[in-house]
Each structure stands twice: as structure tokens, then as C-alpha cells.
Nucleic acid binder design. Structure first.
Lengths: 232, 232
DNA sequence: ACAAAAGTGTTTCGCTTACACCCATGT
DNA sequence: ACATGGGTGTAAGCGAAACACTTTTGT
């Protein structure tokens, strides 16, 4: 919307926008939030990443936060945000010269309200693999692909996973979260040894029943600060 | 210069610029290229990173290349360029709203012409540690600091070092290049074992005399492509 | 008793680390 | 012969990886 209001001599400069790859895990699959792109240039059924112009008096980070609220419809307080890369190809937006500061955003499904989980004609959660098979607007295939690649890489040497799992989780759940991002299986025993030795988890009092089987110990991250630690 | 020509209602939008931290190694020290900032707002002796506005019809990468030529005075064909981060604080430029896409640029001293090595009142090579003690223009202390940090980190798990050493080098020279970036000593025997086992180097025919001592075997990188490999 | 996920230890192998001496050269 | 940087090997310790069975629960 904002973009369409700009015309003519504004092209002397590049406009600045942000695009956000907002990820969450559900049912052992990595999902991303897409919105319907309502731009005359694109066919009516085109999806893209949530985002929009950077306000002249806001930083790119602040704008990303705002667009997560407005476009993705998710409370930004539930979001971890990290700058990914700045995309500046001349023709990445067919209408104007728009440079986009892309962000990776993480949240965990359990914290989302019904409304924030909901899909509609305007906004949806979709698995990353399905999203990448769509023809997204602008260069959003490239951006999403870069975001997913960065996430896959950073998850192995940071504590980013803490923003993708619930506040309380079992070791099996944590392992599955890793597995659905790196798209590989981990050895249960080695995973537990390693993750516990890192000392970043604390044992909680409770246990969790999954189905009718043996209950599993609940854990939480000692700190929600993202730090660089060799994890996998 | 370009910046000062912009006034008034252009502030409706953020201007887009690039700033480049151009590094090279000389005498076992890491140097960075600074230019004199000729802006009324700053005292006449203020230094900053080379950079400038992104041309409306160029990508940020292309603009960075152009500013390396024009501002840093170095042939961009001798440069490896990598995007660092985008800095968008409202007041990072005291005159206009300018968002900067920061780049890390690497070159090796041996490839530079006399002119490109030269220092003047307008442009100089200075050690990174000295540069960071200066009060640079804009947020360039922050940018340079981020660039140096990223370089220190990436040098350990990529082949970035290949862009900082000469095309032909001895293992001692390569080790010293690493040492002056990570600011730590390496064990000569372990370093050689490790770097050779990676299989990224080729043995050259020649040897190199350093002083009047035993000549050292010359090596080169098999490929100048930067790849992600656990190096140190 | 059974079905299903939770939970646990050991061995092997390779990599990392620490460490000291001989080699080749010019003066 | 000597001074200096070039060049090499080994042993110990640590972490990674492979691998299978017992425990707990509800039905």
C-alpha cells in the first residue's frame, strides 16, 4: 500500500523497506508466515514475506517490529529478531527502486494466540519447503532461502533454538526442533549428553505426559539471551 | 559531498549509503583504510571509513565497489567484498537520515601500487587498533568494530585469509596472517599439520628467501573462492 | 502383557594439544 | 661456526560417533 503511493521523482532515491522471514515450529515442521501481496503488478494470488517501508524516523529494526505486528499479525513481544542481509538489486521490486533490509524472526507456536495462528486469505503459516516451491513476490524466494540457510547454520552454533521451542520442553521436543530445522536425524543419547553438558538448560520440577506413555522431564533454558556456543 | 547537496524535503526518506572497512596486512599488523571526512559538522581533522551514497541505479555492492575506487583510491579488482550489516540508527548521520550498508573489504598489500599504499592528508592506512582509538565520524567506530569482530570470527571457519595474503606465500607468512588477526599465537607444528590436511593449499615450485636463512617453501590457495571450512 | 516413548553407558576413533630438536642457508 | 628462521613427529587427552537395552506409563 505504502509502496503504491510513491511515484515519479521519488525514484531519484532508493526507498528502504524491511522483509521478515518469521519462523515457528509446529508438528515437527518449520513454518513461515506469508501474506497476500496486493500489488497490481502481481496476480491476485501471490504470496510474499511480511514487510514494508522503513519509516523515516524509525530504524530498520523498529520498522521490522512494526511490520510484524501490522502485516504478519503477530505480537512483536513474542518475537526474536535478527538482521539477515540487505537486498538491493535494482529490479527486485518491479515498481520502484526499493532496497530491503531482510530479517529473521523467530517465535514459538505455544506462545501464539488463536488469532496469531490463524490462516486466512490474507495471511498464512506455511511450511518452509512448500513456501519455497511457490513463486513468491519480488525476490522473496531468494530472501526466504537465505533466511532458512542462515537459520540452519546459526542454529548449530548459537542458542537460537531457545526462541523456537516453548518455555518448558522435554529433551525429545528439543531434539525434534533441531531435527526439523537441520533436516537430519540426531542420535538421542549423544544429543542428550551434549546438550546437558553445555550447561545451558535447567531441570524443572514438572514432568510432561505425551500420550499414554512414560512422562518426560521438563527443561527450560537458563537464559533467553542468544549466545554463540558450539551446540551440534 | 553528495550528502551535503541534499536538503529539506528529501528527509521524507532515508538516504542509502555504503561504508567500507577495507583491510590489509602489513608488517604483521592489520591495517584499515581511512579517509578524511570533509563535512562542516566534523572538525577538519576527523577520519572515517570510505563510502558514500548508493546511486539510484546501482546495487549496494556496486556502489561499494565504486566508493572503494573513488574514496579509498584502490583498484576494486584487487578487492574481495562482503556485506557486513546495515546500520540504520536515526541519528547516525548528524545531517540527514542516512542508512548505511556496511561492507568488509579485503586486499593484500603486495598487490597494491605505490599510489594505493600511499598516505596523505586525505587518505591513510592505519592499524585497526589505532583506528579504533580515534574518534571517527558518524558511527564508524561501531561499524569498524563490527567489521573487525566479524573478520576475526569468520577467518576461523572460512578461507577469507586467502584474500589477505599474497598469491604466493610461505606457511610462516600464512600463520602470521592468522596470528595478527586473531591476536593470539599459534603452534607452528599444529598449524602446519592442520592447514595442510585441509587440502586447500597447493605446493608451488619456488622457494622464498627471508633474510639470509633457510629458504621457505612457497604455497598458494588452490581456489580463490571463499568457502566455509573449519580452519582453526 | 503390551505398546510406545523416556531414559541411560561404553567403546572406538580421530582430532586437538602440548612439546623439542634437527635442517638449510648466508655471513 | 654460528645465528636464524624452516621444518618435522609423537604421546596423551578429549570429544565425537556408533550402538542396544531397560524403565515407565496407560490401556
Amino acid at each position: 500500500m505504502e509502496k503504491t503511493s510513491l511515484t515519479g521523482d521519488d525514484l531519484r532515491f532508493a526507498l528502504l523497506a524491511t522483509d521478515i522471514s518469521l519462523f515457528a515450529i509446529r508438528d515437527n515442521e518449520l513454518f513461515v508466515r506469508l501474506i497476500k501481496v496486493n500489488q497490481p503488478f502481481y496476480s491476485p494470488n501471490t504470496w510474499g514475506l511480511p514487510g514494508g517501508l522503513v519509516h523515516p524516523l524509525k530504524t530498520a529494526d523498529q520498522s521490522a517490529v512494526q511490520h510484524i505486528e501490522n502485516k504478519a499479525g503477530v505480537d512483536s513481544k513474542k518475537i526474536y529478531l535478527e538482521q539477515l542481509y540487505t537486498f538491493s538489486d535494482i529490479a527486485r521490486d518491479p515498481r520502484n527502486r526499493v532496497v530491503s533490509v531482510a530479517y529473521i524472526a523467530l517465535t514459538h507456536w505455544e506462545s501464539l494466540s488463536e488469532r496469531e495462528c490463524a490462516d486466512s486469505k490474507e495471511v498464512q503459516w506455511i511450511t518452509v519447503s512448500k513456501a519455497l516451491k511457490l513463486k513468491l513476490a519480488y525476490d522473496h524466494n531468494e530472501i526466504l532461502s537465505a533466511a532458512f540457510g542462515r537459520l540452519k547454520s546459526r542454529i548449530t552454533y548459537t542458542t537460537l533454538i531457545s526462541r523456537l521451542v516453548a518455555n518448558e520442553f522435554t529433551l525429545s521436543e528439543l531434539e525434534q526442533a533441531y531435527e526439523c530445522i537441520i533436516e537430519a536425524d540426531l542420535d538421542k543419547r549423544n544429543f542428550r549428553k551434549k546438550i546437558l553438558k553445555l550447561g545451558i538448560l535447567k531441570v524443572l520440577a514438572g514432568k510432561k505426559m505425551n500420550g499414554r506413555f512414560r512422562p518426560a522431564q521438563l527443561y527450560a533454558f537458563k537464559s533467553m539471551k542468544i549466545s554463540d556456543i558450539e551446540v551440534l
